[in-house]
């Protein structure tokens, strides 16, 4: 069975559909990029997969022993976070909260996991620093480390490189690619950077008026993909 399966999924806000009849599967180990115009419902789809929004129709199923609370998430940043007094360590550790149930305090194992992920993201020197004083790229690493505390299997990333400069963007892609290839973590990432998506991902989900879901190789040959990639201006990619 697939790690994640959406069958005949319709989603939207307050009963008004934004996307309808979405069908796709994600197998363990894949790197799926979700692309599409701004406002086409990429973030909404991700929130529906996470159970933050109830689907209007259809369902999201998890398989392969993946429990719904074992999904790591890197949200598009909100305003509140920007001036929040919190140390990097506090934030990373809070990634373990989903597993705590009613237990009031973290266990040693949780603290160890938080440190491991801090090291994995190479942000040890920042551990005691205040989140709001970090650069955009550093903040994304912190949130990625937090997401890794919540999962060992599946990461959902909502535009993880938006607002980062080219060098930091490349590092971030590298980091995510390593997590996928070396650690075998399945990645679902929203991106409006088509060139990078084609370069790093193994699969593409294009949403909009036409929907494509399948391997990268097939995407460019498909009508949707050819049209979109041909537009050029859509992908502000540098390398």
């Amino acid at each position: 069975m697939a790690l994640l399966r959406c069958s005949d999924l319709s989603l939207g806000y307050e009963g008004k559909p934004i996307l309808e009849h979405i069908d796709f599967e994600v197998q363990a180990g894949e790197y799926l990029c979700i692309v599409g115009e701004n406002g086409s419902g990429k973030s909404t789809l991700m929130k529906t997969i996470l159970g933050l929004i109830r689907p209007l129709r259809g369902e999201v199923l998890t398989g392969d022993g993946l429990r719904p609370n074992e999904i790591g998430y890197l949200p598009q940043q909100t305003v509140v976070q920007r001036d929040f007094p919190a140390s990097v360590y506090e934030i990373v550790l809070s990634g373990c909260q989903g597993r705590q149930g009613l237990r009031p305090f973290y266990r040693d194992a949780d603290r160890e996991l938080a440190w491991q992920n801090i090291c994995r993201m190479e942000i040890e020197p920042l551990a005691r620093r205040c989140y709001r004083e970090l650069s955009g790229g550093q903040q994304q690493r912190v949130l990625l480390a937090r997401a890794l505390c919540a999962t060992k299997k599946l990461l959902l990333l909502d535009e993880p490189v938006s607002g980062l400069d080219p060098k930091v963007t490349a590092e971030m892609y590298q980091l995510i690619g390593d997590l996928n290839r070396k650690d075998g973590i399945t990645v679902i990432m929203i991106s409006h950077d088509l060139e990078a998506a084609l370069h790093y991902a193994s699969h593409i989900l294009h949403i909009g008026s036409r929907i494509y879901c399948g391997p990268v190789e097939g995407y460019l040959n498909s009508e949707t993909g050819a049209r979109w990639a041909g537009k050029g201006g859509q992908c502000p990619c540098q390398n």
Binding site: K47, Y73, S94, Q97, F105, A147, A150
Partner: peptide, 18 residues
């Protein structure tokens, strides 16, 4: 710790099972 998680990022907390 729960107050922190819910205050810092409610969506993340909800998405990961809090």
């Amino acid at each position: 710790h729960k107050i922190f998680a819910v205050t810092f990022d409610e969506s993340f907390a909800a998405a990961t099972g809090t």
